[in-house]
Design a protein around this nucleic acid. Structure first.
Lengths: 229, 229
DNA sequence: GCAAAAGTGTTGCCATTACACCCATGA
DNA sequence: TCATGGGTGTAATGGCAACACTTTTGC
């Protein structure tokens, strides 16, 4: 007896990753020059085909690891893209994920190896296929998530200053925020630990370093608060 | 020359639909008894395999149309589910969609034809594979969407009363709302058209009927307001 | 006349916004 | 000493939540 499934078509399945980093007060993302046809040479999101042995999430984790050398990245599925002709080569359905990386952890030797570049999220060039749409969806998903969970920390080094933190949020939301109101809100949440060190890289006076405190955050959540900035 | 793609695996791709209806003050959803192996007879979401000629959205539209006879349903993609063993028969990646239907439009003869049943969203029985997870995700997606866009109207007949409307929102959010505050907020948005008819089915006094006015809604949006209830 | 659902305003509070000046330091 | 970015508090406002009684009408 033939199985029910055997009558059905099968499809290529890919994952494409929007890898966000935060650098010089700007949200950046990592792009590749496609090294195979069709559209060889065109800028593209890093991606890969799903393997038989792995889940969609696993595939995204693999792609991210190949390109960054990092594990345990924060990531979130964005959307499945399934238009018939979205890939000009073959019928491919692709699931987009975004990931947040601390750009200081990134091994820049990988840029050459993979022919990769960082571009500012505000200046994304034309990308292959529907990858520009994927980027838009990912930025939206990141904004929504940020409004409700403190995921922004994943884009910063372990220790960071409040001005840095504010600039990050401004980059994610695409609008400037009031300094006093921002600091008030963030500090009132009581999830940051103030350190006795200053970062003097961006000012003579120096800005105090803070660290995200997971324990305090759990406490904060258990009180039913929400993380709205 | 063999194409780059030909080395890659292919996968079965399915869409599964969470079809919401609103009936007797409760959010309901439409389930099927699976009529093929594996898990024949188990309750399941309506779904179908992607065809070569259609996009993911098209597939969802087709599945919805087969089961309801309706077109132009409001629907939204929820998430792609891709765990290796999520389907006990074969490796299948499935993309979940939810849809909203006006339950009065539903042709109940289809219930028998497809061996389908409506169940209360608060009392969903155990479902096949990861379909229970899909339902949870869909309810969450519906809540989020409802908080930001007036999609609830799709679950109501063209003419509806404010008490009905409030009950719907209570069903979606899973909490009771204050009558006065609710009416104040909804009416202030000025997207409803009050009719000169009353619905006397649920009270002796009768409740005025209203209609959603698309034009007023566009105006409302153009002023930059948002639909938060 | 009574039960059952529809309809209606006001007040207090909290959260958000707007806003301007002093501080510390390296050059 | 001055230029640069870091750091701080208050007042006004508007939106949200809490709250209870009257109206209509079929039975």
């Amino acid at each position: 007896m033939t199985s029910f499934y055997s009558e059905k078509h099968k499809f290529f399945l890919a994952v494409d990753c929007i890898i966000f980093g935060f650098h010089e007060s700007e949200l950046n993302l990592l792009l590749l020059h496609r090294n195979f046809e069709p559209e060889k040479g065109t800028l593209s999101l890093p991606g890969g085909f799903l393997k038989d042995s792995e889940s969609l999430n696993d595939a995204a984790i693999r792609v991210l690891n190949e390109l960054t050398g990092l594990e345990n990245l924060y990531m979130e599925q964005v959307h499945a893209f399934g238009d018939v002709n979205r890939d000009s080569g073959e019928r491919v359905v692709s699931v987009a994920y975004y990931a947040l990386i601390n750009i200081n952890d990134y091994d820049t030797s990988l840029l050459d190896k993979y022919n990769a570049i960082w571009v500012k999220a505000t200046e994304v060039p034309k990308l292959v296929f529907d990858h520009s749409t994927m980027v838009k969806s990912a930025r939206q998903a990141l904004r929504k998530r940020t409004a409700v969970e403190p995921v922004g920390f994943n884009l910063l080094p372990e220790k960071f200053t409040l001005p840095q933190f504010q600039t990050l949020y401004e980059a994610i939301y695409g609008e400037v925020l009031d300094k006093r109101n921002f600091r008030k809100k963030v500090l009132n949440m009581n999830v940051l630990e103030k350190l006795n060190e200053k970062d003097k890289l961006s000012s003579k006076r120096g800005a105090f370093l803070y660290r995200f405190n997971e324990g305090k955050y759990k406490e904060f959540l258990s009180k039913g608060y929400d993380f709205t900035i």
